[in-house]
């Protein structure tokens, strides 16, 4: 059947809409290449001076380092907590386990502003305000539910008989987990780790509440730059933030593809 006019029109509209979704996000790239001293679109001339300023600035560089340390640590912690939890819930497989699972997904559902208030209330008396430990813990809580989701999805395709076989052959719980379960759910664990990393790497709302002077992550410095709305260095920083995000996205796409090749499942 030949598609009618409205279907063809809609197909065109959908492509325009998809371009509308993706292209505006890339505007930071030309703006970062402007030769002028203020935020503007370059006209004919391009320059890398704002990237020079960015990479030469101790303040921006320390923000990079802080963001990287916090995101990697938070992702690691979230991956450990989320993976263990997913395996536990999968083995219990009861109504109570499903209720607990819903409870543990709450950090995804609660609006960030409320999470920010909660961490603020907790961290002031504990002395965790404006500290690496506080940031890593808070971001791990926000990232772990994503790990729980991706690992649970991987476990859904794992045959429980393999676990029984391993136990029957005399392997301990720990050995079974390390040698039998973990290798087969690795794609889910890695995908979860990437999600958790990006969650922390981009996070701004909670960060604004629980930091003051010493913790200045990349999104926080960008937030200030955007509010002041003058310095094109912010655009260069946005491009770097975007580049890291896209690299992580590509890793995720490759992982998905490999997982599908290894373990073909109907979606």
């Amino acid at each position: 059947m030949k598609p009618g006019f409205s279907t063809r029109f809609n197909r065109f509209a959908a492509w325009v809409l998809l371009m509308f979704l993706v292209l505006p996000a890339l505007v930071a790239i030309p703006v970062s290449l402007t030769p002028r001293r203020f935020l503007s679109m370059p006209q004919g001339e391009y320059s890398l001076r704002h990237f020079e300023t960015l990479f030469g600035s101790p303040a921006w560089m320390s923000s990079f380092a802080q963001s990287a340390v916090i995101a990697v640590s938070a992702a690691f912690l979230a991956t450990v907590l989320g993976t263990l939890c997913a395996i536990g819930l999968w083995r219990i497989a009861s109504r109570a386990a499903e209720a607990i699972r819903a409870l543990l997904l709450l950090p995804l559902v609660v609006p960030p502003i409320i999470s920010a208030m909660a961490f603020y209330r907790l961290f002031v008396p504990l002395g965790l305000m404006d500290s690496y430990a506080g940031m890593i813990l808070a971001h791990a809580v926000l990232g772990a539910p994503l790990v729980l989701i991706t690992v649970s999805a991987s476990l859904a395709g794992f045959d429980p008989k393999l676990e029984q076989a391993s136990r029957n052959l005399g392997a301990s719980t720990f050995t079974t987990m390390r040698r039998v379960i973990l290798p087969s759910i690795r794609p889910g664990v890695l995908a979860g780790a990437l999600f958790a990393f990006i969650t922390s790497w981009d996070e701004i709302v909670v960060t604004l509440f629980i930091t003051r002077f010493s913790i200045y992550t990349l999104p926080r410095r960008m937030w200030n730059g955007i509010r002041e709305n003058t310095d094109p260095t912010t655009a260069a920083a946005a491009v770097v933030l975007l580049a890291v995000t896209l690299v992580v996205f590509l890793i995720w796409v490759l992982l998905q593809r490999r997982a599908r090749a290894l373990n073909p499942q109907p979606e």
Binding site: L81, G82, L84, C85, I87, G88, L89, W90, R91, I92, A97, I100, L103, L104, L106, P107, V110, I114, S115, M117, A118, F119, R121, L122, L137, A138, A140, V141, A144, L148, T173
Partner: peptide, 24 residues
């Protein structure tokens, strides 16, 4: 015994997230 694996994350969410929200 699977609850032992759930426990760490459960405690973290209870203590660091749900507790402070109830406080609010």
């Amino acid at each position: 015994p699977g609850w032992w694996l759930v426990l760490p994350f459960l405690l973290v969410v209870m203590g660091m997230f749900l507790g402070p929200i109830l406080n609010i």
